[in-house]
Design a protein around this nucleic acid. Structure first.
Length: 404
DNA sequence: AGTCCACAGGAAGGGCAGGCGA
DNA sequence: TCGCCTGCCCTTCCTGTGGACT
């Protein structure tokens, strides 16, 4: 494309009609004005947290539900409402939302407390102080603020996994000497089993109140998609059956609304690029492929070298009716290690790596017994054939191998 | 009934990097 | 800055096993 053409392209791009009005509505960060099919949960959140509007310390709350079930959304919504009521009535309420998945925030105890302190307006240096000191600064600030403080710890399982439950223990215990101020914790997790890792004392105080967010079913997903799509797309931009199929896709995968919305957005982008005036089923199917493809490429690209060599070995091993065995893969792997310049790992380890790829759905590995001829895993690669050349190229480049 | 293949996959521990308090 | 601790990757050693073959 020459300069002329490129500028033409940009010009026409601007003029081109898009079927989107507001794509943001379909994106993750968007908070809708109304939350569908979560009335009950919102009601429970409200009843647990309402005491803080009377100046009483609300119970700690633990919220559990799989990804895309609206936990964060509902909590943020409740936060907004509480804050505005508190403000209207001049109540000393402070709500701090933190997502523990953010590396900078919850990688260590220190950083989390420092972050909480900063949210209350004290300047805590990013490093340098003893952890005790940070706790003290935070503690004093809370006392001084004489406020009711709600700390929302989203993805709290990550926090506990990275540190220990000690942070939570310290935070829950803090109330004893707060002299009028108070601190409540709202934990959000998509892994229920994580509470089993907690010290019993922490567990019982964190889960004073518990709330479960069930997955959305297909009908509920349809409602959500319809609502959002009227804001996101022009009228009549969604073809017949698209919402239904989109909801069905997502419902099949444990009712994840986030995925459903992503699917619809990507389908819209594809339709847009095809200069279609309507999102049709065909765009939806393409979108599903695209999302799946992107995910696979992401996995292939980001894995460490040893894993990449193992994957390439599986692609290059001679197959028997589309299936390879662990031993064959390991032989190929050993041969590949030399040109790549890696020390070969043991078969035991490679076996585990194969298992990891299986978990990710990149391959399918079933244990199969050949009786007299041993027991092994039957491995078949699940990468769609349209993607194979790309995957091969990525791996060969990453490993500095000549392209085949 | 017993053998034996070709691994699966558990247990324990080595070695290393990165983060911690002192 | 140093030793210490922890988590992660990996190895070693091991026991387990489904079913064709004898």
């Amino acid at each position: 494309m020459g300069d002329r053409n490129l500028s033409d392209f940009f010009q026409s791009y601007i003029k081109k009609q898009s079927i989107f009005i507001n794509k943001k509505v379909l994106q993750d960060q968007h908070t809708p004005s109304e939350i569908l099919h979560r009335k009950e949960q919102l009601g429970q959140i409200a009843s647990v947290l309402a005491p803080c509007l009377r100046g009483e310390k609300p119970s700690n709350l633990f919220i559990y539900g799989k990804t895309g079930t609206g936990k964060t959304l509902a909590m943020k919504y409740a936060q907004g409402e509480l804050e505005s009521v508190a403000k209207d009535n001049n109540l000393p309420l402070q709500i701090i939302y933190t997502n523990c998945k953010m590396k900078k925030i919850a990688a260590t105890e220190y950083r989390l407390i420092a972050e909480l302190g900063r949210a209350l307006g004290v300047d805590i240096p990013p490093t340098g102080l003893p952890t005790d000191e940070v706790y003290n600064i935070f503690f004093n600030r809370v006392v001084q603020a004489k406020a009711l403080i709600l700390v929302i710890l989203d993805e709290i399982d990550v926090l506990v996994a990275k540190n220990s439950d000690e942070v939570l223990y310290n935070l829950t215990r803090m109330n004893a000497d707060l002299q009028g101020a108070s601190l409540s914790i709202i934990g959000i997790s998509n892994d229920l089993r994580f509470t089993e890792l907690l010290d019993p004392r922490v567990r019982s105080s964190l889960s004073e109140e518990e709330l479960v967010f069930p997955p959305y079913n297909a009908v509920q997903l349809q409602d959500i998609l319809r609502k959002r799509s009227t804001e996101a797309f022009k009228t009549n931009a969604i073809g017949p059956g698209v919402i239904e199929k989109c909801a069905a896709y997502a419902a099949r995968e444990h009712g994840d609304a986030r995925r459903a919305l992503e699917l619809l957005r990507v389908a819209g982008e594809i339709a847009d690029r095809a200069e279609s005036e309507q999102v049709g089923i065909e765009h939806l199917d393409l979108a599903e492929d695209k999302i799946e493809h992107d995910r696979m490429l992401e996995v292939v690209q980001t894995h460490p070298k040893q894993h990449q060599v193992v994957l390439l070995s599986m692609l290059r091993s001679p197959t028997h009716q589309g299936v390879v065995q662990t031993g064959t893969v390991y032989d190929t792997y050993r041969e590949l290690c030399a040109p790549v310049g890696l020390r070969p790992l043991t078969q035991r380890r490679v076996s585990d790596i194969i298992g990891e790829f299986d978990m990710l759905g990149i391959i399918n590995a079933k244990v199969h017994s050949f009786g007299r001829y041993g027991r092994t895993r039957n491995i078949s690669v699940q990468i769609p054939s349209s993607l194979l050349p790309t995957v091969n190229a990525i791996l060969q480049d990453a490993l500095h191998l000549p392209r085949i």
